[in-house]
Simulated scan of single mutants.
Amino acid sequence: MAQVTPEDFRDIQRKSRGYCRAVDGTRSRKRMDGSATVSRAGYSPYGTDDASDDVTQDAVLRFAKRLGEITQRCAVAAQWITSRTPAAWQYVRRDGETIVVSRSAIRYWAVRDAAAANGYRLDVKPDAPEGQPGAQAMRGLPHAATLQT
């Protein structure tokens, strides 16, 4: 956790809110007051907490763990000139391919994994519309399995 900066937290919070909002946009589970709480017919069975805050908390912990693993295991690919701190690492994927990952990519991975653990996935088929006038069935975006090399 010592490596997590306030900038990391703000970016993870912004990404988790955007990710949850994108998933909510593909389903009829979004309240229009900005909360990502699951609601069925106006009733929220899990309380009125903002689900993106749960995703943010989980993502910060996942980010700290994965950043620690990557800094210990992977070679440094780039450094900041002013402070000489690592900016990117050479990450070897499971298929053996090497990619360069930055803190931003690790933040996104943490948000994606935390959102999936909290029930938010973009590759799941959307629910049927609630029957409101103008409601359209929207398809979820496919889940990105690989990054560009």
Rank of each mutant, 00 (worst) to 15 (best):
D58S: 02
V23D: 12
C20R: 06
S44T: 09
D50H: 04
R21W: 06
G18K: 07
D50V: 02
Q13R: 00
R17Y: 10
T37Y: 13
D33T: 15
G18Q: 12
I12T: 00
S16K: 03
R27G: 04
S39Y: 04
Q57F: 01
D50S: 05
G18F: 07
D58T: 01
V23T: 08
R10V: 03
Y19E: 09
C20L: 05
G47Y: 01
S16W: 00
F9N: 08
R10E: 07
F9W: 05
K30F: 10
A36C: 10
I12A: 00
R31G: 08
A59F: 00
D11C: 07
D11A: 10
T48Q: 11
K15F: 05
M32P: 10
R21G: 09
R17D: 10
D11S: 08
Q57H: 04
G18H: 10
R10A: 07
D24E: 14
D54Q: 14
F9Y: 04
T56L: 01
Y46T: 09
Q57D: 06
D11Q: 10
Y46F: 15
R31K: 12
R40C: 09
Y46I: 08
R40S: 14
T26A: 14
D33C: 09
M32S: 10
V55C: 05
S52L: 03
D33S: 13
I12W: 00
G34F: 07
F9E: 15
K15W: 06
A36I: 11
A51T: 07
D50C: 05
D49F: 12
T37G: 14
D33E: 11
R17E: 04
S52M: 01
V23P: 08
G47N: 02
R21N: 11
